[in-house]
C-alpha cells in the first residue's frame, strides 16, 4: 500500500479513453463527489491486454505492464483502474514481479534501457473494489438520500466479467467467484433491483483475443447472455469493464445483424457502466454521466438506446 486512501493514480487503458470516454467522464465525476482524487498517469500505454499480448509473449507483457506500474510508483500512488482486462494484467504483473525475484531482475534489465525500474511499492485496485471496500455501501447509500427524490427502480442485469473475480486467489473477494454478490449489492444502492439470470457469471465473449480473431464465436457468447438477460426481463445491463461494455453495446448491434436468423427479436437493452448508474442515484445529471448522445457524431457509442433510462429519469425528475 503506497498511498493515502483518497488519492489514486488513474490508469485508463485503451478502450475507455479511445472508444468509451464517457466511462472516464462518469467515473471521474462520481469519485470527485466522494472526495477521491484521481491523478493522471502521463504516458501510460496499453496494460498490455492479458488475453492477446500475454498470449503472444509473456515476457513482453510483464515488461510493458511493469513500465505502466513504474509510472504510478513515481507518483507514490496505488493504481485505480476501470477495466477488468487492465485489472487482470496489472494485478498479475505486479504480483508476479513482487514475488519472483528472477523475473523481476530480467524485467528491470529491459526497463533500464528506458531509465525505469520496477520497485514493487504500490497496489492495483479496481474501481468496483475501491467503491465497495474504501468508500463502502453505507457512504454511497447516505449520498443517495440527497440525490434523487424517487428511486431509479430499474431491473438490472449485472455482468461481473471474468477478470474482476478470477483467478480468485489475488482478488479481494474472499475467494468467491462462483456466486459473488458484491457487485449486485453495490448497484442495488441505486434503488434498482439486480436480477438473477441464467449464466450470470459467464464470460461476455470478448476476451482472450477471441473478439479480435473469431468475432462470430465471441458474439455467440454475447447472444446467449443477451437471451438470458432478456428472459429475466432486464431493463438495463450493468458492466464494470469497458471491453465487456463494448461487447454488450456495439456487440448488441452486431448480434442483431449476424444472428438475425437465430434470435427471435432484435435486442435493444441499454448498457450502463456502473459508475454512471451510481452517479444518477446520487443526483448527478444524465449529461454529467455521459448518457446524452452527441447529435452530430455518427458511429460512436453508445450504440444501445439510452432513452429507456432517460425516460425513467424524466418520470421522476
Amino acid at each position: 500500500m503506497a498511498s493515502n486512501d483518497s488519492k489514486f493514480a488513474l490508469f485508463l487503458g485503451c478502450v475507455i479513453p479511445n472508444r468509451y470516454p464517457f466511462i472516464e467522464r462518469a467515473t471521474r465525476a462520481v469519485f470527485e463527489k466522494f472526495k477521491i482524487e484521481l491523478v493522471d498517469m502521463k504516458g501510460a500505454s496499453c496494460c498490455p491486454a492479458p488475453g492477446v499480448f500475454r498470449g503472444f509473449d509473456i515476457e513482453t507483457w510483464l515488461v510493458v505492464g511493469a513500465r505502466n506500474i513504474t509510472i504510478a510508483e513515481e507518483l507514490g500512488l496505488d493504481i485505480a483502474l476501470m477495466c477488468n482486462g487492465c485489472y487482470g494484467s496489472l494485478l498479475e504483473v505486479n504480483h508476479t514481479l513482487k514475488e519472483d525475484k528472477e523475473k523481476r531482475r530480467k524485467v528491470n534489465e529491459h526497463l533500464a534501457k528506458i531509465g525505469r525500474e520496477f520497485k514493487g511499492t504500490i497496489e492495483i485496485r479496481h474501481v468496483v473494489d475501491i467503491m465497495y471496500h474504501d468508500i463502502g455501501p453505507e457512504k454511497i447509500r447516505n449520498r443517495t438520500k440527497y440525490g434523487r427524490k424517487t428511486p431509479l427502480n430499474l431491473n438490472l442485469a449485472v455482468h461481473y466479467g471474468c477478470h474482476l473475480t478470477k483467478p480468485a486467489k489475488l482478488r479481494p473477494w474472499d475467494m468467491e467467484c462462483e456466486n459473488p454478490t458484491f457487485f449486485d449489492e453495490l448497484v442495488e444502492i441505486s434503488g434498482c433491483k439486480s436480477l438473477n439470470y441464467k449464466d450470470k457469471f459467464m464470460c461476455c465473449g470478448a476476451g482472450g483475443g477471441v473478439r479480435g480473431a473469431f468475432k462470430e464465436l465471441s458474439l455467440d457468447y454475447t447472444r446467449e447472455k443477451l437471451e438470458n438477460m432478456t428472459a429475466a426481463k432486464a431493463d438495463v445491463i450493468i458492466t464494470g469493464c469497458p471491453f465487456c461494455h463494448l461487447q454488450f453495446d456495439l456487440g448488441q448491434v452486431e448480434v442483431n445483424n449476424i444472428f438475425k436468423d437465430k434470435i427471435s427479436a432484435p435486442f435493444n437493452i441499454p448498457v450502463l457502466y456502473f459508475t454512471q448508474l451510481i452517479g444518477l442515484a446520487i443526483g448527478m445529471t444524465p449529461e454529467e454521466m455521459g448518457l446524452i448522445k452527441s447529435p452530430e457524431l455518427k458511429g460512436v457509442p453508445p450504440f444501445t438506446p439510452m432513452k429507456p433510462v432517460l425516460t425513467k429519469i424524466g418520470d421522476s425528475a
Binding site: 479513453p17 479511445n18 470516454p21 493522471d40 502521463k42 501510460a44 496499453c46 455521459g290 457524431l297 460512436v300
Partner: peptide, 29 residues
C-alpha cells in the same frame, strides 16, 4: 502504445464532446 488506439477523428471529437482533452494523457499525448 495502444491495442485500441485513436485512429479516426471521430474518437477525438467524442472525447471533446464528453469534456475531455481530444487526446488522453497516455502514449497518445
Amino acid at each position: 502504445g495502444h491495442g485500441v488506439p485513436i485512429n479516426e477523428e471521430k474518437w477525438k471529437k467524442l472525447r471533446e464532446y464528453h469534456k475531455l482533452n481530444e487526446l488522453p494523457p497516455t502514449t497518445h499525448q
